[in-house]
């Protein structure tokens, strides 16, 4: 287990290094926190749970209207962005970024990381 978690930590640290990214978090599809890379981590458990709910709700909504699975959920807010992507059937990745971040770059890296996380948790 130590090895798996080390790998998740490495992956999250890489994501955190992208310009403008303030936090990177791995959570399970059912809303449990797996691991996080974040300065102050008080509401991490709640953030993980809420993000899983949002992605889950988005998936339910789009599949019911036959639009297929959503690629990601992006929340634009007053002071930044929250981005959630699925990473295989078990997990998801959450990114908190500030408003100056480059969304395109983050999305490319995030998709790559999501594929890696899926492999790690296999």
């Amino acid at each position: 287990m130590a090895d798996t978690l080390d790998m998740v930590d490495k992956l999250l640290a890489d994501l955190k290094n992208i310009g403008g990214v303030e936090a990177s978090i791995a959570a399970s599809r059912d809303g449990l926190l797996i691991r996080a890379n974040m300065q102050k981590g008080k509401f991490l458990e709640s953030l993980a749970a809420m993000s899983a709910t949002m992605l889950g709700a988005a998936e339910t909504a789009t599949t019911q209207v036959e639009k297929g699975l959503p690629t990601r959920v992006i929340v634009e807010s007053e002071y930044g962005r929250l981005i959630i992507v699925g990473a295989g059937p078990k997990a998801l990745l959450i990114i908190l970024a500030n408003s100056n971040s480059s969304l395109g770059l983050i999305l490319i890296e995030l998709d790559k990381s999501a594929r890696k996380l899926k492999e790690i948790l296999k």
């Binding site: 059912d30 449990l32 899983a52 889950g56 339910t60």
Partner: peptide, 10 residues
């Protein structure tokens, strides 16, 4: 109900 199903695992 669909959301409940998603979140109740584990």
């Amino acid at each position: 109900d669909p959301i409940i199903k998603l979140l109740s695992g584990e």
